[in-house]
């Protein structure tokens, strides 16, 4: 099963995970959610991410491109071939990742998460016209 890890600024990762658990059916303890702390201690964040990596590949979902969350996650990919980082996570992407993590390999899961993420951005008002 592909391991899913969330990394964000502030409480977003934890809050997104809790919100997802009100919609999707899964064990919240299986998804580590880390944040960039105010202490700015990126080394300990990096250590936490590295110790949470899975054996069958890991998909790290981060909040924003170029943020410390993203930069730290990308540095962690240097230690393993089987880790992917996707930025811009939203609720749809997280649910897609969780719901398909035991059906797909890392490559196809990443592709699907990105597709569903892009599909989730809709100008509804425009559609309703």
């Amino acid at each position: 099963m592909v391991k899913i890890i969330l990394v964000s600024h502030g409480n977003m990762a934890q809050a997104l995970l809790e919100t997802a658990s009100n919609i999707g059916s899964f064990d919240i303890s299986e998804i580590p959610a880390f944040s960039v702390s105010g202490k700015g201690d990126l080394e300990s964040l990096s250590a936490k991410i590295l110790s949470a990596l899975g054996q069958d590949g890991t998909l790290i979902l981060v909040d924003t491109l170029g943020g410390s969350s993203c930069n730290t996650a990308v540095q962690c990919t240097q230690h393993s071939q089987n880790v992917k980082v996707v930025c811009g996570v939203n609720l749809n992407m997280l649910l897609t990742a969780i719901n398909n993590r035991n059906k797909m390999d890392l490559q196809s899961l990443t592709k699907k998460v990105l597709e569903d993420g892009k599909k989730s951005l809709i100008d509804i008002s425009e559609k309703l016209k």
């Binding site: 491109l65 170029g66 943020g67 993203c70 990308v74 540095q75 990919t77």
Partner: peptide, 11 residues
Amino acid sequence: TLMVKMMRMAL
């Protein structure tokens, strides 16, 4: 090089 690539992407 990875860090430089990331900075380029973020800018």
